[in-house]
Amino acid sequence: MLAAQHILQLKGLCVGLINETKLDRSEEKTIIRRVLHGDTAAYESLIAHYQPRVFATARKYARRESEVEDIVQEIFIKTFKKLDSYREEAPFEHWLMKISVRTCYDYLRKHQRNKVSSFSDIAQEDFDLLEVYGEDKHPTREKQEAINKLVHDLLERLQPAARMVITLLDIEGKSVKEIAKITGWSVSLVKVRAFRARKEMRKILEDFNQEKYL
C-alpha cells in the first residue's frame, strides 16, 4: 500500500516535470521574443525543453560524457548568440537541430581520432557478434552492449564528413535533401560524400577482416 503510494507520488512528480518543460509553438515564440528583448532568464525554459533532444544528438558523435556536455553547452550558447537570425517561419526545433548537427561536425573535425590504423582495441569476439548479428532475435544485454561499443568503435574510424553522412543517412534514415539542409552542403556533395563514406566503411571492415586472419 505504502509502496503504491510512493509510486503514485513519483508518477505525479514525473508528470509535473514533463509538464514544466512542455512548450507549444506560440509559447516558444513568446519566449524567443522575450529573450531577444533582453530577458535572458527566459532562455532557460527553452534549454530545459530541448536539452534531451540535443543530448541525444551529441551522444551520437561523442562518447565521453564530459565531451557531450561541452558540445551541448556550445550548442545552446551558439543558439543564444544567433537567436536574432532565427526566422519564425520554420519551427525552432529544426533550426536548433541544424546548429546542433553543425556543432557536432565541428567537434568531429577538431577531435579526429580516426587515424588509428590498428584494430587492437576491437575485440575479435565482438566483431564475430556483428557477423552473426540479426540471427539472434533477442540478444542478451551484454551482447547488445558489446555490439553498441563495436558500432561506436568502427564509426570513430571514419573521417568526420563520412561519419556525419552515415549517421544521418543510413542510421537516422534522413533523406539526401534533408541532410543538405541540415549540413549546408549541396545535394550532389551529400551524394558524393555518402558514396565515399560507405566505401570507407567497407574498407575498414575489410581491413579488420584481413587483420583477423593474419
Binding site: 536539452q51 534531451p52 533532444r53 543530448f55 541525444a56 551522444r59 556483428l130 557477423e131 548479428y133 540479426g134 547488445q144 555490439i147 553498441n148 563495436l150 558500432v151 568502427l154 564509426l155 552515415i166 543510413d170 542510421i171 534514415g173 560507405r198 566503411m201 567497407r202 571492415l205 575489410e206 577482416n209
Partner: peptide, 21 residues
C-alpha cells in the same frame, strides 16, 4: 563486406537514443 556493412547499420539503428540530461 556488404553483408557486414548492412549488419553494422542495422545494429547501429537498434542502439536506443540516450536523452538523459
Amino acid at each position: 563486406n556488404n553483408d557486414i556493412f548492412d549488419r553494422l547499420i542495422r545494429a547501429a539503428r537498434r542502439i536506443p537514443e540516450n536523452d538523459q540530461t
